Simulated assay, not measured.
Amino acid sequence: MTTIVPVILSGGSGTRLWPMSRPEMPKQMLALTAEQTMLQLTAQRARGERYSAPIVVANAQHADLIEQQLADSDSAPSALVLEPAGRNTAPAIALAALAAGGGSAALLIMPSDHVIADVAAFHDAIAKALPKVEAGWLVTFGIAPDAPETGYGWIQVGDEIDTGVHRVARFVEKPPLDKAEEMLAAGDHVWNGGIFLFRADTYLSALATYAPGMLTAAQDAMDKARRDGVRIYPDAAAFGASPSDSIDYAVMERADKVAVVPVAMGWSDVGSWDALHAISDTDSAGNAHRQTGTGEVLAIDTQNCLARSDGVRIAMVGVSDLIVVASGNDVLVLPRGRSQEVKKLIEAMKNS
């Protein structure tokens, strides 16, 4: 039985969910969709006899938080690789592949801040992918689309090469709306959810072919790394020499043996407050309320709102289609449908 090593990428800052998500407390560390944090949920969906302890690649400033949240013996990482600087996903995964020994172990690459509602469907997709992974294929999981989404990359599904596994025909950049509508209508495209499965040696070999400078930098950084228990601190100067690139650009779009497993598993990247509202349980008026800590939310004659507080009381009367989020001394108020514009606020605050 092939051992699967979960690799959890936890380098993101999640600024689109400000004010709750901040550089010191990014969204994967928050309990946004359940009692557990998103990081904890990610670790929990890759447990069992087939799975080994996870490898977590993260920002060094979050090391204590990660160890606290994954202290459970079933989720405790075998390695916590602490990047000295962000270099995007391709170098981060190279560090993980080297931490795993660089051999035949299958790496399940998962972002730490996504939601998968149907874990059984996810496991079924993994089982379908494994024979091709063992044969040296790079596999990605394509999310069954339900909207002409312009915020995601798409993948055109090619010929079936094994049960439920297809060759990737092409990767598509984040499309304009008309192209997204065409792909959705055609029925042969899926969303690129950024979840992958491949052998460590397969990935490192692909890097040697398509991004040799990145591989050299990662190897050098790990050779010179400082180790403290499960914590691995790659050498900053060596890792800083790596090009910054995503796995899609560096490897997946260029390699030959690349496959996709389409799957409907209740996936969301929770990329905005609107996205969180869409997957949240709501009351009879369409409101999604949640409070943590000493937070409190009171809503009267209110419809289709998202309200979150971890401290101050939010009181709403006679309003509809609003997003109201209170955290610490900050309160965010905006109409539903415009939560992607939080990044404008972040920029304005940086400049003020």
Rank of each mutant, 00 (worst) to 15 (best):
V251A: 01
L207E: 01
E173Q: 12
Q303D: 14
D245I: 14
G229D: 14
A90S: 13
V57M: 03
T3D: 06
R290F: 07
L65W: 11
L82F: 14
V190G: 10
G103H: 12
L98I: 15
I55L: 03
A348G: 10
A135P: 03
R87T: 09
A121P: 05
W154A: 00
A71F: 07
S339Y: 11
P175V: 09
G102I: 03
A125M: 04
D159Y: 05
W191S: 01
V261P: 14
V190N: 10
E160R: 10
A105H: 12
I8D: 02
V119G: 07
I66N: 02
G142Q: 09
V342I: 15
A96G: 08
V333F: 10
R16W: 07
A85Q: 15
R227Y: 05
G151C: 02
G151Y: 10
I300L: 13
A241L: 10
Q68D: 15
L41N: 10
V260L: 07
A255S: 05
V157I: 14
V56M: 03
I346A: 11
L276M: 09
T37A: 03
R16P: 05
S339G: 12
S246C: 06
I116K: 02
T15W: 04
K27H: 07
I314R: 07
K224S: 13
G337T: 09
E49S: 13
I4A: 07
A236N: 05
R231T: 03
A348I: 06
A121R: 08
V319D: 01
A99G: 06
A97V: 00
V5N: 00
I126Y: 02
R254Q: 14
T302G: 12
I195L: 15
A43I: 02
L332Q: 08
E67C: 11
Q156L: 11
I155K: 04
L332R: 12
S21K: 06
Y233D: 13
T37S: 15
L98W: 08
A43R: 04
P234E: 10
E67N: 07
A218Y: 02
C305Q: 12
G271W: 03
D321G: 06
M265W: 09
L345D: 13
A129V: 08
E341H: 11
S352Q: 15
K132N: 15
A127V: 14
T33K: 01
V260C: 11
H123E: 10
V190K: 06
W273C: 09
T302D: 13
L207A: 04
Q36G: 05
S75E: 00
M25V: 12
G151V: 00
A105R: 13
M265G: 00
Y51P: 04
R226I: 09
A99S: 15
P26M: 06
G328P: 00
W191N: 02
A326N: 04
T292C: 06
L332I: 02
S352W: 15
R226P: 00
H289E: 07
V56N: 03
C305F: 13
A278C: 02
Y249P: 02
C305S: 15
A186I: 00
L80G: 11
L107G: 07
L306K: 03
V342A: 11
R313T: 13
D118Y: 01
V333E: 12
L82P: 03
L30P: 00
A255F: 00
V317N: 14
V172M: 14
